[in-house]
């Protein structure tokens, strides 16, 4: 029983990484109509930047600064590369971010090395909170808290700021928003940066738990796609939910049949697609 709890909880933590990634992807998919293949690359970049920043400004400083650094690079990519492709066949933005993902992976490999790097976290976060449930370490609780704060922050931005309201309106009808005098190029750029910000944060949190490798991006991005499909395209809550569901499902499978723990999330996806093609909370006929 404890083992099952252990695996389920492990899965839940990984699910939080998926959920953070899926939230950002979903945000970008919504307003920019781009599947950002490079999301994993930006995530890894966030983690690696934090690794470099920790000796200079400490863990807490890096936790704040690294996501913004990743987001700044995201803005550059959006301006220079993705912006010319709005309104063209979605194939081209897919291919472009695909190429960007390859380049980002290569850059992290060249700069920080192909070997994995350990990511030091503050000592007090390393201790278990409880002797029986030894797996509930301070860091895992910390991951949950940070994710909750980031998610709440995102929803607050979308609900209460002018920018957030414009983003939501743009999701509903970009043309009308443009005709009301909103600079939609700026809006899409800001939205893209917001998504990358979440990716960078996910990168740092994942680095503390799983360590840093150049391929961490490409291994975490696929489950995030699955999270979006399961949760339903067009729904941020859905993406969040989808990420947690597949994380926990993979964790529980690890307890019973470890070698199927990766396959199971794709089986869940196939099942959802057949039973409820639009996903748990998705809108019908979006992005088609």
């Amino acid at each position: 029983m404890e083992l099952l709890l252990f695996d389920a909880f492990n899965g839940l933590i990984v699910g939080f990484f998926y959920a953070l990634m899926a939230l950002g992807l979903s945000l970008i998919l919504g307003l920019n109509s781009v599947i950002n293949f490079a999301h994993g690359g930006f995530m890894a970049l966030g983690g690696y930047l934090a690794f470099t920043l920790v000796p200079i400004i400490g863990f807490w400083g890096a936790l704040i600064l690294a996501p913004f650094a990743a987001a700044a690079l995201g803005i550059l990519a959006e301006r220079g590369l993705i912006r010319p492709l709005y309104g063209r066949d979605p194939l081209y933005s897919l291919l472009l971010t695909f190429g960007l993902a390859l380049i980002l992976e290569d850059i992290t490999r060249t700069v920080w090395g192909a070997q994995g790097l350990p990511f030091a976290i503050p000592n007090f976060l390393n201790h278990p909170l409880n002797n029986v449930y030894f797996f509930v370490t301070g860091y895992r609780v910390f991951v949950v808290i940070v994710t909750a704060i980031a998610t709440a922050g995102l929803f607050a931005v979308l609900r209460f700021t002018r920018l957030g309201i414009c983003i939501r309106a743009g999701n509903a009808d970009l043309e009308t928003v443009a005709s009301l005098g909103v600079n939609i190029y700026f809006l899409r750029g800001a939205n893209f940066a917001l998504g990358i910000l979440l990716a960078g944060l996910a990168g740092i949190l994942a680095a503390g738990q799983l360590g840093l490798t150049p391929t961490m991006g490409s291994s975490l991005i696929m489950p995030s796609f699955v999270a979006i499909i399961v949760g339903g395209a067009g729904s941020l809550i859905g993406s969040l939910l989808g990420g947690l569901i597949i994380g926990v499902a993979a964790g529980i499978t690890t307890a019973y049949f470890p070698s199927a723990s990766e396959v199971v999330i794709y089986l869940i996806m196939a099942f959802v697609l057949m039973v409820r093609p639009r996903g748990l909370l998705g809108q019908e006929g979006l992005f088609e």
Partner: peptide, 14 residues
């Protein structure tokens, strides 16, 4: 469209 791409790539990973 994009949804087709996302699903085919995910199933491939399986």
């Amino acid at each position: 469209g994009i949804y087709f791409a996302m699903i085919t790539i995910a199933i491939g990973q399986m």
